[in-house]
């Protein structure tokens, strides 16, 4: 309850901050439209030469694109800004102020900063997903939708934990901004179904940089090509990653030496 109230306060703060720069909204809308145009244009080009791609039909890959933008937008909206701010505050010592507050520091760090306008990506991703669903029509049952929702939530948790672990490295190495770039560049691979990729790359994208759980698995659930066992696997990985990143955070924050100490 307290956490929800904190979330509301931080979001309100971020919103009033964003509203001071309203032109940014238009700029971001423009960039976002370009991004979507590129993604969908690429798909149109590929599917002008083929009916299926690695066993996926055009609407299924469009759904994947929607998921790709929803998860990517959510990361850019909440996770990335918070983690970047964490790294900065470790370096300049302002993390002191977070650690002394009577709220769990991991939660507080996660609420630190929001890029409100990046929500545009999430909304556009939802729109693309809606179009894909309409094209897929009756093929999507209630079970599929349920599995999709669970897979998406699990994928989100996995991506969050992964980012938190990367950012936590700053307690030891201080300058880790570049490591964050690894996720951003490899996330691009999530645009396409991971079963297209050769084994080594699929392994990398599933277990080392968990892009597949956040993009391909939810999209697979939606098109009804996976059952509950894979969803359970996804949930298991999510639970494991959440616990692991929590432990990592606990150990890491004990390494923090502060600015004035």
């Amino acid at each position: 309850m307290r956490i929800l109230r904190l979330l509301a306060i931080h979001l309100r703060l971020a919103l009033s901050g964003a509203l001071a720069y309203r032109a940014d909204f238009l700029i971001h809308l423009f960039e976002s439209l370009l991004e979507f145009g590129t993604g969908l244009g690429g798909l149109a080009l590929v599917f002008s030469h083929t009916q299926t791609l690695g066993g996926w039909s055009a609407p299924e890959v469009v759904a994947l694109t929607g998921v790709f933008f929803i998860v990517g937008g959510a990361v850019r909206f909440a996770v990335q800004p918070a983690m970047e701010s964490l790294i900065e505050s470790v370096r300049d010592g302002t993390l002191d102020f977070t650690l002394v507050k009577p709220v769990d520091s991991q939660v507080l760090v996660g609420l630190k900063r929001f890029e409100i306008w990046k929500l545009v990506d999430v909304l556009m991703g939802l729109a693309v997903l809606a179009v894909a669903l309409w094209k897929l029509g009756a093929a999507v049952g209630l079970g599929d939708a349920l599995r999709f929702a669970v897979a998406l939530a699990a994928g989100g948790a996995i991506v969050y934990s992964f980012w938190l672990m990367l950012a936590t490295l700053s307690f030891w190495f201080v300058r880790v901004e570049n490591i964050l770039v690894i996720f951003q560049s490899l996330y691009e691979a999530g645009r396409w179904p991971v079963n297209l990729y050769p084994g080594w790359l699929r392994f990398l994208l599933t277990f080392l940089v968990p892009v597949a759980f956040a993009t391909t698995v939810p999209a697979e659930a939606l098109s009804g090509r996976i059952g509950w066992e894979k969803i359970l696997l996804s949930l298991g990985v999510a639970a494991g990653m959440l616990v692991l990143s929590r432990l990592f955070w606990k150990i890491g924050s004990r390494h923090y030496s502060g600015a004035s100490a």
């Binding site: 570049n178 490591i179 770039v181 490899l186 691009e188 691979a189 396409w192 297209l196 050769p198 790359l201």
Partner: peptide, 17 residues
């Protein structure tokens, strides 16, 4: 780290095509 991105883009389109 930056080179990863450079190699990845053509690799993705190579795989797709």
């Amino acid at each position: 780290i930056w080179l990863i991105g450079h190699v990845l883009e053509p690799l993705l389109y190579l795989v797709v095509w």
